[in-house]
Computed example of a mutant assay.
Amino acid sequence: MDNTDEQIIHLLANNSKLTQLEISERVGISLSACQRRIKLLEQSGVIAGYKAVIDPTVLGESLIVFVLVSLERHSKDGVRAFEAAVSRLSMIKEIYHVAGEYDFILKVAVADIKDYQNFNYDELANIPGMGKTSSLIALADRKHTTRK
């Protein structure tokens, strides 16, 4: 992978709707060379797919909370059971198994603080194996702001 491939990856990461012609012009290579490079990046797994970035506020999910979770048990079965339980909750948008003081970081999207309170008490607290949690409320998303 060279500098040109890195430029292509950067462009696609910021806007996957760019046409191959637009990418080739911005990078300064021919359209056919750009098409070959993108195809190779896809085949090698560097580009694993394309996705839409959804504005959560339009869906009524204007509050983002990162929940740090410590499990009571750290067995393989305990971890798998926790992952299965949180995977079923639609408010949880991302799940990260991490090393350190906490075992998981959950990205939760809800309408408001009342919805988060309900989610925390009615859903999250009832998952078997839950230990200590800590909630971090996101004030702003600087990386995924809408680009026009």
Rank of each mutant, 00 (worst) to 15 (best):
I9F: 06
I9K: 13
H10R: 15
L11N: 01
L12D: 03
L12C: 07
L12P: 04
L12S: 07
L12G: 04
A13T: 12
S16L: 02
L18H: 09
L18D: 01
L18K: 12
T19H: 04
Q20E: 11
Q20R: 12
L21E: 11
L21M: 09
L21A: 12
E22M: 05
E22R: 10
I23K: 06
I23N: 01
S24E: 03
E25F: 02
R26S: 05
V27F: 12
V27I: 11
V27D: 05
G28A: 05
G28D: 02
G28P: 02
G28Q: 05
I29G: 03
I29F: 05
S30G: 14
L31V: 06
L31E: 07
S32E: 12
A33S: 15
A33W: 01
C34L: 06
C34M: 09
Q35A: 13
R36E: 08
R37L: 08
R37M: 07
R37E: 04
K39A: 14
L40I: 03
L40Q: 14
L41P: 04
L41N: 06
L41M: 08
L41T: 10
L41F: 07
E42D: 06
E42L: 11
S44E: 13
G45W: 08
G45S: 08
V46Y: 00
V46T: 15
I47G: 06
A48H: 02
G49I: 02
G49W: 03
Y50R: 13
Y50F: 15
Y50H: 15
Y50Q: 03
K51A: 15
K51L: 07
I54G: 01
I54N: 06
D55W: 03
D55T: 06
D55P: 01
D55H: 03
T57H: 12
T57Y: 08
T57P: 00
V58L: 11
V58A: 13
V58T: 10
L59R: 12
L59N: 11
L59G: 04
L59H: 11
L59Q: 14
L59F: 14
L59V: 04
G60E: 12
E61Y: 13
E61L: 15
E61F: 10
E61K: 15
S62C: 01
S62Y: 00
L63C: 03
L63W: 08
L63F: 10
L63Q: 14
I64D: 10
I64C: 15
V65W: 07
F66H: 09
V67F: 07
V67H: 08
V67M: 10
L68Y: 13
L68Q: 12
S70A: 09
E72A: 02
E72L: 12
R73M: 10
R73I: 12
H74K: 15
H74Y: 10
S75L: 08
K76C: 00
D77E: 14
D77N: 13
G78V: 06
V79E: 05
R80I: 00
R80H: 08
A81N: 11
A81I: 01
